[in-house]
Design a protein around this nucleic acid. Sequence first.
DNA 1: GTCTATAATCAGATAGAC
DNA 2: GTCTATCTGATTATAGAC
Lengths: 199, 199
Amino acid sequence: MTSSPRRYGSPDAKNRSVLLDAAEELLLAEGYSAVTARRVAAQAGLKHQLVHYYFHTMDDLFLALFRRRAEQGLEQQAAALASDRPLRALWTFSTDPAGASLTMEFMSLANHREAIRAEVAHYAERLRAAQAEALPGILQRYGIPPETCPPIVLVFLTTCVARVLVLEDRLGMSAGHDETRAYVEDLIQRLEEHPSRHD
Amino acid sequence: MTSSPRRYGSPDAKNRSVLLDAAEELLLAEGYSAVTARRVAAQAGLKHQLVHYYFHTMDDLFLALFRRRAEQGLEQQAAALASDRPLRALWTFSTDPAGASLTMEFMSLANHREAIRAEVAHYAERLRAAQAEALPGILQRYGIPPETCPPIVLVFLTTCVARVLVLEDRLGMSAGHDETRAYVEDLIQRLEEHPSRHD
DNA sequence: GTCTATAATCAGATAGAC
DNA sequence: GTCTATCTGATTATAGAC
């Protein structure tokens, strides 16, 4: 009589990670619309019902996938900011094709999946807050007067440029890319190689 | 015997535009995954088969929708660049929420729809080329030495910032937005109100 | 933990009547 | 130009056996 007490897999089962890996590959290669229970399972070499066994709904799968990546991202960025060439490290981190592509894909997803929206927004704000907190000290170390440009604006600009570069690359666009990369990297190099000279 | 010579509606039929309008509303409000033949027709108050009558496939509908918007966009940007306050006009044009949202939605779509990809990339390159052509003259008029920053880089930066601002707004993000908007608008105002002074 | 089987939707697309 | 009817295939999700 009592309605079936639906069972679900434990969070640390091996095949759970296998499914998440498969989902991430699909998301990166074909976009979020390709991430269906059946295709994820096929990619993992498992039956599609297992997706529902480990993740109640597809939203749950996306959330689990996002959280796993988000934690890695926060750690990587913290390491970059703490390194001895933080600007270069931050730029390398931000323009990582896989990372930026996944972020953009999750942002698209968040646009029409309510459950994802809050999570993505929260993570992005945390990333940005960590940068905004670290940057003033970094700029000061390089002798850059804070009046030049508010650190939070610099943080925002960097993120924008990195994301759009990666996004457009994927579409086969290139207008202005080389010039912008060169401009940013030249800027970083001048700052980090000659901390005293910058005009 | 001869296989049915499938018929299709003429490009200037009234209901064709009605369907495109409906598709655009859906795309803006709920994202591209909501733009199905059935939902578009429902939004337009028509039967879903009419979508296939006017647009052979859904890709055709997306392409028609994109081209209609793209032509408007190119005209609007040309008008902005030719106005007496081109920087301000360009910024206003670029940060138009509806326009930027649609552009981002089409970029997401282009990411996993081959037929859309080429069209979106081509349009975006044309927009950027038009800006890159006009900007040197504008900067010269304001007395800005071209060594400060390559015009094409400025063009790219502006587009990035505008797009990401709009995208993040839709997700409910706000960190750094006010500061960045203020920074850009202050910059534009200083340039356009006092063409001679800029330091 | 994994399987078979199945329910219930929803999608794109076409044929042919009116 | 618009309709009804239909085909085909994909999707999420659940129940219950093993």
